[in-house]
Design a protein around this nucleic acid. Structure first.
Lengths: 201, 201, 201, 201
DNA sequence: TCTTAAACGAGACGGTACGTCATGTCTTAAA
DNA sequence: TTTAAGACATGACGTACCGTCTCGTTTAAGA
């Protein structure tokens, strides 16, 4: 329906090449200097598009940056599936941590920082990246529950937060190093719990 | 020593009232509009100080903001000590979450966002606030270990991250609601662990 | 000829209502804010016509403004004819001055100002308004010559310039007030000449 | 007084070189393309000054243009004084007309056009140029009256308008050619008056 | 009746200049 | 030597119009 409506809209069609040129330029700027060097002016200059054209389609810097980032990062963190859900989870956490340690992590941190003054930036990141990732991790956890590796009464949301939030605080605030050893310690801690082991019997 | 040296330094002394006026103005601006409305220009105008004076003593916006925030938030999250370390921890988490949900939380989010382009801002926040808080929580946990409430082989650092990082992702990215119910679910999850309960016997 | 050629041209005819809507919108904009608020964009929005349509028929802003102004100001300065050419001239000057003092004068000033960057605007104004007026004043003067009120060897062009140019400098530069008293003094001065009266005998 | 006050004002003094660089750049742009090519952006680029600096000192384009023009045109229309006031007046009119026909005339026309949207531009031109010129012509006329060349009861203001306004309408609207022959005809017409010669005796 | 050419609305697009904001550096005179 | 005041170069902001350019629709003449 909406497709038909759009097809019959009068006026010149949106120029797809321009759109792509803008997103490409935006992504390159992001990659080179994170959000710090990311300016509409710069994107316009690099893409050859007019500032007005950019403003026509993206209301804020953050939205453009988010879309550029998402467009160019289709292949998110993916890990092979093994027989052990615990091992899969740990592998996924390690992979995400390694991304956070890389240049991409710097870009993501910039997006989140930008998100403070433009909540929709963060929303775009959440919808575009986090939800996709959450779907994967949720699946792993549910498999783990089915296989008896995780508690059957597990609060999946809280579990995911406990496991993955530290990666963000490491990225944004340097609270931790995000190296493999740390990730393992974190995973173990959440896995076994911090409470004293229940007494047998 | 340093006092004597400073007293005998030639030239006009640093004006303490000016320093305070600047910090006071900075804090009010922070409170009113978070980092978004926080500008050196604005602080100068509001405090009656010259921009030069501000730049002489604070290298960046973020540092000034951090100091202003810290100066005015001496009384951090404090909870009464009960006999149960678990209850204390839970109370502390609830308190911090309530702060994060308040206007102060918005300011903190701004500081962290600013920290992306000025790492020393985040460092100041970490040293000034987080470490103090960590000292408290670490104490609670160590008491809990001693009392047999927590595992004796606990990785305290990982435990604190698992418990507190979700508050930051909630604050910065809205990943969760930070209400009391959520905090309890989070605490329980980390307390009992996500792994299947070891079989008795 | 041209009419026939146009009639036999293929394709859709020019839409007369659109043309009128454009001119009407243009005139209203002119009236409201002079040339300052007059933009093609604005005319398009107000008239409901497309910018393309406007550009198809009017090469420049000034031309459109001039035509809009002329179309809506068919009834130019007209004065009743009395037995005295001198009185008629004076009445005509007073009338024109009063127009120049009004909102219409402001629009005219705008057209002339615009004419600096688009000479054809001024040309349109000259042909459309000034020539018509000159025809009237020239007639009055020639009648005055015939009646013995004006010198028989009068340089009509120079005389009209001396009488009417001050109205324009008053309009454009505020060199004079354009009130009735001034007009009379001007007319008297040009009438009697500035030279010392020729000696009798 | 104001000098003393200014001397004791705190803060950095206005940079004279920058001021001159701006005026010089402004004048060159004016000379090259009149008001059409005159942009604050252009002046900034050419002078090496910042746009903000320009806006600090000149509120509008027109004011800057007017000042730049006046500064660089100190030596206005000057004519040698002869024994005949009539001859002097005619020479002065010819000289001014020749200026109006030149590139400078184009610049003046631009200033007047700009004055439509910024009245203070025209005011600056009037005070800076026209008044100086009027002082000269008024002197000539008064000398002429004293010498018996002009009527003793002459309305000097009206006379000057009748003589000089046509030069402006020629400049701005091309109503006349401004060549020497025209100037002479104009001068003669105003000199002798357009009325029929009074009968001797 | 069908074709074809123009008029027309809508609106995307590359531009230019606008006037403003905040940055961080600098100069000056008083304290 | 510190301070308040403020000038300055820089660079990005977001906006307003400009004039050009597709688009698909509508209208009428000619084949």
């Amino acid at each position: 329906m909406s497709t038909a409506a759009e097809l019959h809209r009068p006026g010149r069609k949106r120029c797809e090449e321009t759109r792509e040129a803008i997103l490409r330029a935006a992504y390159h700027l992001l990659e080179e200097g994170g959000m710090g060097k990311f300016t509409i002016e710069g994107v316009a200059a690099r893409s050859g598009a007019a500032k007005t054209t950019i403003y026509r389609w993206w209301p804020t810097k953050g939205r453009l940056a988010a879309e550029a980032f998402l467009t160019s990062t289709a292949t998110a963190a993916m890990v092979p599936e093994t027989s052990s859900a615990i091992a899969d989870l740990r592998a996924h956490m390690r992979l995400l941590a390694s991304i956070f340690r890389s240049r991409v992590g710097y870009v993501i941190a910039g997006l989140i920082a930008e998100g403070h003054s433009d909540p929709e930036t963060i929303e775009a990141y959440r919808v575009g990246i986090v939800e996709r990732r959450t779907r994967i991790t949720r699946t792993i956890i549910e498999r783990g529950i089915a296989q008896g590796e995780f508690r059957p009464d597990l609060d999946v949301e809280a579990a995911l937060d406990a496991l993955y939030s530290p990666l963000y605080t490491g990225l944004l605030m340097g609270f931790n190093t995000l190296d493999d050893d740390y990730i393992d310690r974190l995973a173990d801690t959440v896995l076994h719990g911090i409470g004293a082991a229940p007494r047998a019997g």
